[in-house]
């Protein structure tokens, strides 16, 4: 069989997958909007419990990682394999740092008993239970996507090293980049909704 190659088609497939993901998170945002409209006060107080500094740091590093991955595509297009690899490695490290921050953030919440099912949380009323339920689910699923992103980056770095991904065939890198930007896009909305809005 002749090998069929269609980079634009591959990219289109990735975009369609991104749409699926957008709707998946979208429904969580719908749930968030509904419960926020029902319990505005509790959601404000819940937001105050979250660490704005930590959230801002994570936002900044995620934005930086979005840039490094976008730059690595430019580097690949220019044939600069070494730079592309360096930029991807930086992205990978940032992804791990993001998760480490998340780990400490979650840990602190567990300590205060904001985790689902904790007796302290159950005493705090419905709005707060919903706020932290959504917080853990939404940031949790987001973190899961970061994990998948890390796996993808490792694969891409490995393929670049083996020259399977190169200057004229880099759609895997592009699609992984698209996926990573999706993770960033979601966070762009998660951050103000949970951490910022009072």
């Amino acid at each position: 069989m002749t090998v069929h190659r269609d980079d634009l088609g591959d990219k289109m497939g990735m975009w369609l997958f991104i749409f699926t993901e957008l709707l998946l998170f979208g429904m969580l945002f719908v749930v968030y909007a509904v419960y926020r409209s029902m319990h505005p006060e509790a959601f404000k107080l819940g937001g105050d419990e979250l660490d704005v500094v930590m959230g801002t740091i994570n936002t900044i590093i995620l934005l930086i990682s979005s840039m490094t991955v976008a730059m690595s595509i430019s580097a690949m297009q220019k044939g600069n394999k070494k730079l592309a690899l360096t930029l991807l490695t930086i992205t990978l490290i940032i992804a791990v740092v993001f998760l480490v921050n998340k780990y400490f953030e979650w840990g602190a919440k567990f300590e205060y008993g904001f985790n689902p099912g904790a007796p302290e949380l159950l005493e705090l009323g419905h709005g707060t239970i919903l706020f932290f339920g959504l917080y853990f689910i939404m940031t949790g699923i987001h973190a899961l996507h970061i994990l998948i992103g890390i796996a993808l980056f490792i694969y891409v770095v490995w393929q670049i090293r083996k020259d399977k991904i190169h200057q004229t065939d880099y759609v895997w890198l592009e699609n992984t980049g698209l996926y990573w930007h999706l993770v960033d896009l979601i966070w762009i909305f998660l951050f103000p909704l949970f951490y910022l809005i009072h």
């Binding site: 749409f19 993901e21 998946l24 429904m27 749930v31 319990h39 419905h126 239970i129 339920g133």
Partner: peptide
């Protein structure tokens, strides 16, 4: 593409609700 993820996340929420006691749809938890 656009509708199936909705059931996906909804079913996941049911799983989360059953396994971890996260209150999303349970009236007892709001």
């Amino acid at each position: 593409i656009l509708a199936t993820p909705v059931i996906g996340i909804t079913l996941l929420l049911i799983v989360a609700e059953r396994l971890m006691g996260i209150g999303i749809f349970d009236p007892a938890l709001g």
